[in-house]
């Protein structure tokens, strides 16, 4: 069984959500982002999303834009990201999912990418600007190297399309919680429960909810509606607001608080 499947089964057996924090690889520098990833695992993360920076992140709000621009300015490359993933893998069995825009992956070459990610111990890939309609080459390459391609659905996705999208992917289904870009939000979007219900009716893959998940209360609210909570910008905001010497610990403390909130029974 894959690490991703194992993580979801274990969480289900324990009656809790999978907690999946996002780490912007290379921000503020590669070494610190690896340290942060390890701190998140120690804090109770069940799955890590590792963000690969891209110059034109159209689905991201200001926080991740700024973090990835800084990562690029610091010289972060896909090579460096894959090496960082391998480094994180040496000390953990937690599933690692790489998230990034299509073009850097296309330039690497999908076959080489799938092989190199597998060798680095990466378990899956999320590409927010590559729809299942256009990703056949990537899907084949990943399938050959036991890598899950995680599909995304949004509140605007019609139910029949949710089923088709889910059928083209594996691992879990990334449910974009809102119509908008990534970023910290005060409240969950109205209608989220109905959307997640619609997803559950149309697809069997576990539902991981991301975009705007910002507080332990948000995580708690997902109990019974989804199988995983993804958090990104809110953690980066906490990291940025803290004094540099405490930034890793403060962000990890938020992951711990979210993991505590994820116990559903």
């Amino acid at each position: 069984m894959s690490r991703i499947d194992t993580a979801f089964r274990a969480a289900k057996a324990d009656g809790r959500l999978v907690i999946a924090p996002y780490v912007a690889l290379g921000y503020p520098d590669m070494a610190t982002s690896v340290t942060l990833a390890r701190a998140y695992i120690d804090a109770g993360a069940n799955l890590l999303e590792l963000g690969v920076p891209f110059s034109d992140p159209i689905a991201d709000g200001p926080t991740i834009q700024r973090a990835t621009q800084r990562a690029l300015a610091e010289g972060s490359t896909l090579t460096g990201c894959i090496e960082a993933a391998a480094e994180i893998r040496t000390a953990t069995g937690v599933p690692l999912v790489l998230m990034g825009y299509a073009n850097p992956f296309l330039q690497w070459g999908y076959d080489d990418l799938a092989r190199d990610l597998h060798d680095a111990g990466v378990d899956g890939l999320i590409v927010p600007d590559l729809l299942p309609d256009d990703n056949e080459d990537l899907a084949q390459a990943c399938s050959a190297h036991d890598l899950d391609v995680i599909p995304l659905v949004a509140p605007t996705t019609p139910s029949d399309r949710i089923g088709r999208v889910a059928a083209r992917g594996s691992g879990f289904l990334y449910c974009v919680s809102l119509t908008g870009v990534t970023g910290r939000r005060q409240d969950l979007q109205t209608g989220l429960a109905a959307f997640l219900q619609r997803v559950g009716d149309a697809a069997t893959l576990p539902r991981a909810v991301g975009f705007g998940i910002s507080t332990p209360a948000h995580v708690r609210a997902l109990c019974g509606q989804a199988e995983a909570a993804i958090m990104a910008s809110a953690l980066i905001d906490i990291f940025d607001a803290a004094p540099p010497s405490e930034a890793v610990a403060r962000a990890a403390a938020q992951v711990e608080a979210m993991a505590d909130a994820a116990t559903c029974r």
């Binding site: 600007d129 729809l131 256009d134 995304l152 119509t179 908008g180």
Partner: peptide, 20 residues
């Protein structure tokens, strides 16, 4: 039908925009 001129074009966007 998928928006390709030969091998060029297509629809490389976030899922949210697909219905629009």
């Amino acid at each position: 039908a998928a928006g390709y001129f030969g091998t060029w074009g297509g629809r490389y966007v976030p899922e949210t925009l697909v219905p629009a």
